[in-house]
């Protein structure tokens, strides 16, 4: 278990120290959401209507940004070879890297999401629902993304391919994420949607490390 936390700590340090990962994903998130009022016009009704969808879609894209370096960087400098020699199974190490990715990308996105909700003119209840839905749903984004990152590690143009592979798999998170926000905004209970999001995150937490570890082993061969 110490290896697990060591990997989490190291990845977090790298993500926050190098001025890369975390800051860039958040900036990308904000800039993307800003483009929508400029694209569809500043009409408050329209923005409030599409707000939850825009924030969620932008969050999916922002989560993708830092994923292509998830295993690639460690593969290039040989760190992955060392990690694979550790007594912990590779699945646990993959899970640690997912947790670090979520802490360094998912959490910052959630932190700025209320602000973007305000910019889009979403009602207060909707913003509350958005934060809850993102808290429960974004772990699945990191986990599913890790499978794509493992598969495309060491591949030319891996980043674009990664997006192609992973985005269709993100669709269920998007659908239930948005509907949770809409239920909360219209005063209905968001509980069932949130439960489904939580179920999806737990489900992927079990299965995604298996697939991602298999893919990483392949990249190490």
């Amino acid at each position: 278990m110490t290896v697990f936390w060591a990997v989490v700590r190291r990845d977090l340090l790298l993500a926050f120290r190098q001025g890369g990962g975390a800051g860039m994903a958040v900036t990308f998130f904000v800039v993307t959401v800003t483009l929508f009022p400029l694209g569809v016009g500043p009409e408050p009704n329209v923005l409030a209507r599409i707000g939850s969808g825009v924030v969620w879609v932008s969050a999916l894209l922002a989560a993708l940004l830092s994923l292509d370096r998830l295993f690639q960087a460690d593969l290039e400098d040989g760190g992955l070879d060392l990690l694979s020699l550790s007594p912990e199974p590779l699945e646990i190490i993959v899970l640690a890297k997912c947790l670090a990715h979520w802490l360094s990308t998912g959490l910052p996105l959630i932190a700025v999401a209320p602000l973007l909700g305000l910019l889009m003119g979403m009602p207060g209840a909707g913003i509350g629902g958005l934060v809850l839905a993102m808290l429960l749903g974004t772990p699945a984004l990191s986990l599913i993304g890790a499978v794509g990152a493992g598969l495309t590690a060491g591949v030319r143009r891996g980043g674009v391919l990664l997006s192609l592979l992973v985005l269709p798999l993100y669709i269920p998170i998007l659908i239930f994420g948005v509907s949770a926000v809409e239920a909360a905004a219209t005063g209905l209970t968001a509980r069932p949607h949130l439960l489904i999001l939580a179920a999806m995150s737990l489900f992927t937490a079990v299965l995604a490390p298996l697939a991602a570890a298999a893919a990483v082993r392949l990249a190490l061969e």
Partner: peptide, 20 residues
């Protein structure tokens, strides 16, 4: 690996799209 991940996801995608 991708095909297997996709086949696990396909029913979930189908369910969520139907629901949506």
């Amino acid at each position: 690996i991708l095909a297997l991940v996709g086949s696990v996801n396909l029913p979930i995608i189908k369910f969520s799209v139907d629901w949506w």
